[in-house]
Design a protein around this nucleic acid. Structure first.
Lengths: 145, 145
DNA sequence: TCATTTTAAATTGTATAAAACTTAAAACAA
DNA sequence: TTGTTTTAAGTTTTATACAATTTAAAATGA
């Protein structure tokens, strides 16, 4: 029953890690999922809700209200696609762009703390989790076929 | 910025893994957190809400409504402590106990699927995540001190 | 003892998650 | 073309998470 322990480990690690990061996001009034959306946009601005959903594995049911919240905070602007009116492009506002260096700065202490955990190989763990994610996704997809 | 990828990996893996398990819990009308509480009680019946919270790293704000739901489903009974009236003991009912072999049976196909992922060492991953969890907890505690 | 502090649950309010459904637009197919 | 299907967002409902507060009981201390 190893997978039982694994699911519980993932569940608990995920929540506690997010709580750790959340400590540093509070001063900006951002939640972790909101921060993730901004993080994605800082790398690639103007993408569709659908594309954000693919990167985070979330659908519009979760993302639409979250992105509307970011819009009310004036960090992003939502824009209907002209060529395809079903789509919505999410673009950073100036305040949204300006947030990046501030948050990066604020997160440096956390990065330093985590780098001191020498007995943990973050790179290896990342690789293992990436492989696991692909396996889970293939299992989910194979159930549909 | 490795920890960024790590937090996203944990977040996504956790949710998708739970969705995978959830597929097998639907026939019992149970959610994953509800199943986890029952899983804990199957190993140790009659423990306190507080103790369940320590094992799952959740507090009464989450657990109280969840356990009340399990009580409405007639899987557990909540009982005020006699010696210490602040506490609440959670005990399995007969239907709650009877559920264990049924769910164990229903989860076998998932276990088989996961065992076929030979390129993933579940045991190693478990160990790494356990170490990570301890590190995260120590970081959280050190912030409080 | 009795006031103070701590503790275990419960409550309240906000923000996800996710399934199921709706809507409008685009793609497709006979 | 036009009827059917698919797709992208949005809406609704239910169930967590979690911070902050409240309540009642237990533990502590001068």
């Amino acid at each position: 029953m190893l997978y039982q322990d694994l699911s519980l480990s993932l569940y608990t690690n995920s929540r506690l890690f997010i709580q750790l990061i959340q400590n540093y996001l509070n001063e900006f009034g951002l939640t972790y999922p909101q921060y993730l959306v901004l993080h994605i946009l800082w790398k690639e601005d103007g993408i569709l809700v659908k594309q954000i959903g693919e990167k985070m594995q979330l659908d519009s049911g979760t993302l639409t209200p979250l992105i509307k919240k970011l819009e009310r905070m004036n960090y992003v602007k939502r824009q209907r696609g002209e060529a395809d009116e079903r789509t919505v492009h999410v673009e950073l506002t100036y305040p949204g762009k300006s947030l990046q260096p501030k948050i990066t700065q604020a997160l440096i202490p956390l990065e330093n703390q985590l780098n001191e955990l020498e007995h943990i190989n973050l790179a290896d763990l990342n690789t293992s989790l990436q492989n696991l994610l692909e396996s889970i996704q293939s299992l989910k997809n194979s159930k549909q076929g």
